[in-house]
């Protein structure tokens, strides 16, 4: 009886999960199909899940688009640099914050400051002025430093640390280990799922952000990929003059844009499986304890 209900439950689990999965796959398949289609069919909204008049011209055009690859490189650089900085700062801040007030007296003051910084901001003009007066305009630092402390991720990591058993730390301290050693040797190895999660969030955050590129880059050659792609959407209701036609006809190329979106999504697809194993196989505390 019990087994039967389990089977039924299993069946429905699979059904729901697969249905949801399929629904998530379709729009991307649609994008891929558009990217391989003829531009007129795409503009006619006639492409579903299979390319119409299959051709590779969009991808050929991307290969020749040197700004695309330039921006691609800048995005990669930003992700690597930005994520590293993020991880260092996240870990350094999350550890003291995971202590209670008894262990770290100033903990709550810091916490309040951080939450304040998360909730309030002065808008883009003062941020722009700061970046400009620091001489960071048009440098990679303008893309990575303003978001060096992703507060949401700090809080997330802090909660992972909180969940770790205290006994290990106490034992190490008894053996004369410093707090830094505790953090590096005990906390970090134990929180790989947490680290994987915040890394993923940091990577995705850096990769997808287009606005700081728009604001802090004065040269189009310095745009990261998403900023470059963001510009490709044009509002035709604003086109009132024939002189804008050139821009219109080139930008309205739906297949090319789809190809650019597909290519820009690939790195995120590739990175996921690497991080994923840390939260699927379940690196559990028990298994590391020995």
């Amino acid at each position: 009886m019990n087994k039967n209900t389990n089977k039924v439950a299993n069946f429905f689990t699979w059904l729901i999960v697969l249905a949801l999965t399929a629904s998530c796959l379709l729009p991307l398949v649609n994008m891929v199909a558009i990217s391989f289609s003829d531009s007129a069919s795409a503009a006619a909204n006639q492409v579903g899940l299979i390319p119409v008049h299959f051709n590779l011209s969009s991808y050929r055009m991307i290969l020749e688009d040197h700004q695309f690859w330039l921006s691609f490189g800048i995005s990669i650089e930003r992700v690597v640099l930005g994520t590293l900085i993020n991880l260092v700062l996240i870990v350094l801040m999350a550890y003291p914050l995971s202590k209670n007030k008894r262990d770290f007296h100033a903990r709550n003051i810091y916490m309040n400051l951080i939450i304040f910084a998360m909730l309030f901001n002065g808008g883009m003009i003062p941020s722009f002025i700061v970046i400009k007066s620091l001489g960071l305009m048009d440098t990679i630092w303008a893309l990575v430093l303003p978001g060096a402390v992703p507060i949401f991720n700090v809080i997330l990591m802090m909660n992972f640390f909180k969940g770790l058993p205290n006994a290990l730390e106490e034992a190490a301290i008894m053996d004369g280990a410093s707090k830094m050693t505790v953090l590096l040797k005990i906390y970090l190895p134990l929180s790989l799922p947490g680290l994987a999660t915040v890394s993923l969030f940091a990577i995705v955050g850096h990769w997808n952000d287009y606005f700081s590129g728009l604001l802090y880059m004065n040269r189009a050659a310095n745009y990261p990929l998403q900023t470059y792609i963001q510009q490709l959407n044009i509002d035709i209701t604003k086109v009132t003059d024939a002189s804008q036609l050139h821009a219109l006809t080139s930008i309205s190329n739906k297949t090319l844009n789809a190809a650019k979106i597909v290519v820009s999504t690939v790195p995120l697809l590739l990175i996921y499986p690497f991080l994923q194993k840390y939260f699927v196989t379940g690196m559990t505390i028990g298994s590391v304890k020995e």
Binding site: I125, F128, K132, I234, D235
Partner: peptide, 20 residues
Amino acid sequence: KFEAENGDNYDQKVAMAIST
């Protein structure tokens, strides 16, 4: 001094230039 796409993006750069 700056480059930006014609339209909203350009207007914003101009506003920033004026602000600073």
